[in-house]
Nucleic acid binder design. Structure first.
Lengths: 156, 156
DNA sequence: TATTGTTATACTCTATAACTATA
DNA sequence: TATAGTTATAGAGTATAACAATA
């Protein structure tokens, strides 16, 4: 099991990496844009999402901003913080990457039956949630439309 | 499906990264040691396994060698090439990482039934093989001990 | 000529520590 | 004092191009 999952992970990362590179992006830059599709987090918020130090995020956002993919906006509530958002150009790029990624994943699951795919999808979600929970993060609350999970007490 | 798989991939990479870091390794260094557990590839061979440029592998092996985790041996057949192998110390380290990784994955699959785990494992393998095939690599032939590859016509 | 591996170089990604400007 | 973000710095990881040794 462990071996199979590790292999799968590397395979998917490889696919993602190749597609991102074909669009002149690294995996982490693609991830950044993906997060910003439906959120306007602060630098600290991004650091938490990505599990990176805030100084790493500063650099990440700097490079994306230099390319016109994201922008910083001063927060009106707390003048120390900024809000990071995606630009039209960034959104267009990540949308193209997503389409390509979906097509490639389609190749990987080609040998699975429709029923297997459904089950795989469900299991993957279950595991991602278990991971988030084990780190004390409530991933469900950060979802887009609907996806509202059962309200949970608190963290820790 | 795509989203769930991506989430799962990042979750597993996160787990791997944290465990590797706890043992003073990066993911790629852990992968390198994992590959060397039952193989003695050339630099070019490693580059193919890892899908990296050979110059990247030179640096990777340099750093691992500096730490006494791997070693280079001159090939007797082709004096241009070297064989990279794991040291006792490297093997001990990757074994410890593997044990810790297995324990963490156990947490992630905790919410899955035994039957689901079996199916997940099988599907993960299927997908990893599909990926290898899509890249023209025969992962199955590259397995353990004396995996004497059946002489094959051509690569490409 | 072609291939194996290294070197030189440049860039991205990352963390730690020190700093600034707010709060 | 504490927090949000940046800067300075250092190191790993990666690719491209040029190179030496060998085939």
């Amino acid at each position: 099991m462990v071996d199979a999952l590790a292999q799968l992970t590397f395979a998917i990362q490889g696919v993602l990496g190749r597609i991102a590179a074909a669009h002149d992006l690294s995996i982490i830059q693609a991830r950044l844009l993906g997060i910003l599709r439906d959120r306007r987090p602060t630098i600290n918020g991004l650091a938490e999402f990505l599990q990176l130090d805030k100084s790493s995020v500063t650099g990440l956002v700097d490079r994306a901003q230099d390319r016109g993919l994201v922008k910083r906006t001063a927060s009106t509530l707390d003048r120390r913080s900024v809000q990071v958002s995606i630009t039209a150009s960034g959104r267009e790029l990540i949308d193209r990457v997503t389409v390509a990624f979906e097509a490639e994943i389609e190749v990987l699951v080609a040998d699975l039956s429709p029923a297997q795919r459904t089950r795989l999808s469900a299991m993957a979600s279950t595991m991602a949630i278990a991971d988030a929970r084990s780190r004390g993060v409530d991933i469900a609350a950060a979802r887009p439309a609907s996806a509202n999970r059962v309200p949970r007490a608190g963290h820790h």
